[in-house]
Design a protein around this nucleic acid. Structure first.
Lengths: 355, 355
DNA sequence: TTAGCCTGCGCGAACGTTCGCGCAAAATGC
DNA sequence: GCATTTTGCGCGAACGTTCGCGCAGGCTAA
C-alpha cells in the first residue's frame, strides 16, 4: 500500500495529504490523542507518543499549517518588504533575517514594493490575508495611510526608513554620517565640496541636513550650484556628474548621499577619465564589494547593516514572544556609520578645477 | 463603533479579524451569500454584491487565507530555495520571480539552504506543511532522498543545478561555456592554460569536462598541475592563485569555472599586483557589476540569468494552471552563455612565467 | 473504607471559508 | 393558465487542527 502510494507520487500524481485522522485510524486511537501526542502533551503516555511518532514518520505525515492557523495559532510566517531585493543591502538583510528566524521556527516571505506605495499597500493586504505573524518593512517614500493602519494591527519593525506614526524602528544616524564625511574632507583642506544626494526620502533629507551642518560649523559657504538633489537612483548620479562638469564649477571634492547615486557617480567619473583623488576627491555612501575594486579604492561610509538587521530580528522575535502591545515603549535604535578611508580622498592638490 | 475599533488599533491592540460572518450579520444576509458575493458568483444579484463590497471595505475585511487553503484551495504561495540570497545571481532570481508571480496572484517566500542538505530538507518540510502551491529550487550538492520525494509531490522547477530523478529544469550549457572560454584563449595563441574550478557540483564537473574537451580538440596537452579543482568558494580561488604562483608553473592564462572562484582569483591577482593581461590572461565565470570595474575589465562568461529565470517562472505558472502531472513531458531548457570580451585577455606576450 | 487526586484517553465544538443542494419566487415558454 | 426554467438566496457539511471538558481506572491519604 505504502509502496503503491510512493510509486504514484513518483509519477507526479498529487496525493491527498496524510492527516492526524489517518494516523488515528492506523493506530486505533482518537484524533485528539494523536494530536496531543504530536504536540508532546503531558497527559499522553510516553508509549503512545512513541507509537504515534513512528506512524507519523512512516506515513509521511506533515502538519497542515493552514488548519493550525485557523484555530487561532500563528502562521509562523514573517514577511520582509523591501523596495528591491537586488540591492546588496536588502539581500544581506534578507539573508540575515531568513537564517535568524529559521532557528526560532519562523519562515521568511519576501515582498518587493519597488518603492511604489500602491504596490506596497497591495502586498500588505496579502500579508494580512495570510495572517503573517510579523513584518519587517523598509517603507516606501510616501506610504499610503492604509499601509500604516494595517501595520499597526500586527507586530512589525521598520528598517532604515521610517513611518513616523509607527513605533519600532532600526535606522542609521543619517545626519551624522554625512557630517563625518564632510569633516573628513574639510580636515584634508577642501573648501569647495559638492553634494550629490537624495531629497525624496526623510533619510535623504537628514543626510543633506548633515552636509549643511558640517559646512556651516566649519565656517564654509555652501555653493548652491554644487548641491545636486534628486532621486536616489544610479541615473541621477551619472547625470549629476555631467551637470557638475558642464557647470565648470570649482569643486575639489564630492560627497554622495545615497548608495545608488554613489555607484552612478563613480561609474561616470571612471568613464570621463577623471583622476581620483588628483583632480577630485570623493566620499561615497555605503560600503560593499565593488567599492574596493573601484579606481584607487573608494573612501566611503560603511553602514552597519548586519548590526541593525540582527537587532531588528531579535526585537521582532521579542515582540512575538511577549506579544505585548505594540506602540508601548517603542524601540528606536539609531546606529552610527563608519568612515572607511581608502584612496579616493586626498588634500586638494591646488585650486584645480574639475572639467 | 468603527471609530472605537480604529483607535484601539492605533494603540496597538490586536483586534479579532473581521470575517464574512460579521458582514453577514451587518447586512442581514447569510454567510454563504456573502461568501459568494465576494467571489463574484453568478447566482448573486448585482445589488447584493455591491452592498457586500461596500460593507467589506467599510469594516476592513481581509479574507482568511488559511481557511481558504484548508478548504482545499491553493495557498498561492510559491517558494524559492537558494543556497545564499546575497549572491547577485540569486537575488536577481528572487526579484524576477517575486515581481513575475505577483502579477499572477502568487506570493514568493524565501528559503535559504546554505547548500546544506539537511537544512534544505528541513525547509522543504516546512513548505510541505505550509502547502505551498509550487517551488523553485536551486538544489544543493547532495540533496537528501526525502527532499526529492517531497519535491516530486508538488509542482516545482529546478534552476541551474539539477536532481536527475526530477523532471523540469532550467539550466546553463555549462560544458559549452568553458569550451567557448578556452577557444577564445586558444585563438589568442595560449597553450599553457590553467583551470581553476569546482568539482563538487554536477555543473562544475560539466564545466571541467568542457575545459578538457576544448584542449583536446585543439590538440593541446593538459598540464594537471595547472588544473586546480575545489569547492566553488571565494577562499578556494585565492588559495588556488597562491598554489599557481608557488608552483612556478608556466601558465599564460587562467579560466575560472565558478562565480565565487572568479572573485577570489581576481582579488588575489590584484593583491599580488599581477599585470593583467600582460603577465597572464584570465577569463571569468559570470558577469555582473564588479567585473566591469576590476582592473582592465574582466573578460567573462555572461550568464543569461534573466532569461532562464523568466522561463522558469512562466513554466511553473503553466504547470500550476494546467495542473497536469509533473514528470510527463518534462521541460528541460539549456541556455547558452555569452563570452563578453574585455581587456583581461590578450595574446601571450612571450613565454613569460607567472611568478 | 471513602473521599479526593492523578493518569490516560475520547468526545465534540470551534476556527473561516467554500460549495452542493434545496427552495421559494420570478420569469419564461407553449 | 399551467409547466418549466431561471434567479436569488439559505442551510449545513466539510477541510485539519486544537483544546476544554468529561470519564473511567488506579492511586494516595485520612
Amino acid at each position: 500500500m505504502l509502496l503503491l502510494l510512493q510509486s504514484l507520487a513518483h509519477l507526479g500524481i498529487h496525493l491527498p495529504m496524510i492527516t492526524i485522522k489517518d494516523i488515528a485510524r492506523e493506530l486505533g486511537l482518537s484524533i485528539s490523542t494523536v494530536g496531543r501526542a504530536l504536540t508532546d502533551h503531558p497527559r499522553i503516555s510516553r508509549e503512545t507518543k512513541e507509537r504515534v511518532q513512528e506512524a507519523a514518520e512512516r506515513l509521511g505525515y506533515v502538519a497542515n499549517t493552514a488548519a493550525r492557523v485557523m484555530r487561532g495559532g500563528s502562521s509562523h510566517l514573517i514577511s520582509l518588504l523591501v523596495p528591491d531585493i537586488r540591492s546588496e543591502f536588502y539581500s544581506m538583510v534578507a539573508h540575515i533575517l531568513s537564517t535568524g528566524f529559521e532557528s526560532e521556527g519562523y519562515h521568511l516571505t519576501l515582498s518587493i514594493t519597488d518603492d511604489d506605495p500602491n504596490r506596497e499597500m497591495q502586498q500588505m493586504r496579502e500579508l494580512m490575508s495570510a495572517r503573517v505573524a510579523g513584518v519587517v518593512i523598509v517603507p516606501s517614500a510616501n506610504p499610503r495611510r492604509e499601509t500604516a493602519e494595517m501595520l499597526s494591527k500586527i507586530p512589525h519593525v521598520q528598517l532604515l526608513r521610517r513611518i513616523a506614526s509607527l513605533g519600532d524602528w532600526f535606522g542609521l544616524d543619517d545626519e551624522q554620517a554625512i557630517v563625518d564625511a564632510a569633516n573628513h574632507l574639510i580636515g584634508l583642506g577642501h573648501k569647495k565640496i559638492a553634494y550629490i544626494g537624495d531629497n525624496t526620502f526623510p533619510t535623504g533629507k537628514a543626510r543633506y541636513k548633515g552636509f549643511r551642518r558640517a559646512m556651516t560649523e566649519a565656517g564654509l559657504k555652501i555653493d548652491d550650484s554644487l548641491v545636486l538633489l534628486g532621486p536616489p537612483e544610479l541615473k541621477f548620479g551619472t547625470e549629476a556628474v555631467h551637470k557638475l562638469v558642464q557647470g565648470r564649477k570649482p569643486a575639489t571634492a564630492i560627497i554622495t548621499g545615497a548608495v545608488l547615486v554613489t555607484l552612478g557617480v563613480a561609474e561616470q567619473l571612471s568613464k570621463l577619465n577623471v583622476k581620483v583623488p588628483n583632480q577630485i576627491s570623493i566620499v561615497g555612501f555605503g560600503d560593499g564589494p565593488w567599492q574596493r575594486w573601484w579606481g584607487p579604492g573608494l573612501t566611503t561610509l560603511k553602514l552597519p547593516i548586519e548590526e541593525i538587521t540582527t537587532g531588528c530580528a531579535l526585537w521582532l522575535l521579542h515582540r512575538l514572544k511577549t506579544s505585548r502591545q505594540q506602540g508601548k515603549d517603542p524601540h528606536i535604535a539609531v546606529s552610527p556609520t563608519t568612515l572607511v578611508i581608502r584612496n579616493s580622498t586626498a588634500a586638494p592638490k591646488s585650486t584645480r578645477v574639475l572639467r
